[in-house]
């Protein structure tokens, strides 16, 4: 396998971990976020400082990056997620930008805006793929279990969910914390892959990208998110030679998807036998509709 292919697979795995986190919070729990790149930055810098400066082994450094991101998510989530509305979305813009600015002004500790070089190369193909498999296994177990149903209940009807005895604020915060952990781990892996990180890599554009991939893949569909991520990552790779048009095309795709198919490529379906069954049912329903025409 060529080094280029290996690199693409590593990038895909890292992006997959990050978008799974965002999909959990935006797609499954219905909390819109514009600052998840901030959690990635926390994970990346924590792991980079621990490995490069204090020569930690990379696994505890990655986990520490994830945990610190989760802690920050908890601190910002408690006051804002108790309120219904877009308050977390707005706070997340501020949070993402504030984290970036703090890193830029961190002096010798974060090495400022010029970036943090000299990170040991701990993310190879095996590490990236193994992390992805472990994180995906945990995520699919989570969303298919009791917690996943609770998250969806908070998204679809929080009044009904609270009447059923769910502490909806608690579940919303839990969802955000888990998603912060995923993004922190993704950021830590990214640092070990690129060997160099700088605050500008985690700006609002990156956060937008994470959220728009989730929307593109389908809100409430984990496999749709992963599919959307693969498509977007590969499209941007294909357009790399004409990089000045790349962002233009990316923006246009975003608008066109929203105009033509706002529910994303997968809607709320997951891959598997259930999807085909549901699609079949839908067409059957169309066929026998009362007016006798396709709806």
């Amino acid at each position: 396998m060529s080094a280029y292919t290996e690199g693409i697979i590593c990038v895909l795995c890292i992006n997959a971990i990050a978008v799974m986190g965002v999909s959990l919070v935006t797609g499954y729990t219905g909390i819109f976020s514009l600052g998840h790149a901030g959690y990635m930055a926390i994970g990346a810098y924590t792991a980079a400082i621990l490995t490069a400066r204090y020569s930690f082994y990379f696994i505890p450094a990655i986990v520490a990056g994830g945990l610190l991101a989760a802690l920050i998510a908890y601190i910002i989530g408690v006051p804002t997620l108790k309120l219904v509305g877009d308050y977390y979305a707005i706070a997340s813009i501020g949070l993402g930008e504030a984290i970036r600015l703090i890193l830029e002004n961190g002096g010798t500790f974060t090495r400022g805006a010029r970036g943090f070089p000299g990170i040991p190369n701990y993310t190879n193909l095996t590490v990236a793929v193994c992390s992805f498999v472990i994180m995906a296994f945990l995520m699919f177990n989570l969303i298919n279990g009791r917690f996943g149903r609770a998250f969806k209940a908070c998204r679809d009807d929080y009044i009904a969910a609270s009447l059923l005895g769910y502490n909806t604020a608690k579940y919303r915060i839990l969802s955000l914390v888990i998603s912060g952990f995923y993004c922190g781990v993704a950021g830590a892996l990214l640092g070990g892959f690129l060997l160099y990180i700088k605050p500008l890599m985690f700006d609002m554009m990156k956060s937008t990208e994470l959220t728009s991939v989730v929307v593109f893949g389908g809100l409430g569909s984990m496999s749709g998110t992963l599919l959307g991520m693969v498509i977007i990552t590969l499209i941007t790779e294909v357009f790399r030679p004409i990089s000045q048009y790349r962002m233009l095309i990316y923006g246009a795709i975003l608008v066109i998807i929203m105009v033509l198919r706002p529910e994303g490529i997968m809607g709320q379906y997951e891959f598997g036998p259930g999807m085909f069954k549901a699609i079949k049912e839908k067409f059957k329903g169309d066929h026998y509709s009362e007016e006798g025409r396709k709806v």
């Binding site: 937008t208 929307v215 233009l248 929203m258």
Partner: peptide, 14 residues
Amino acid sequence: LLIASMGMSIVIEN
């Protein structure tokens, strides 16, 4: 609408 507006901002800028 929010996401479309972000797309439009990327389009106009680029």
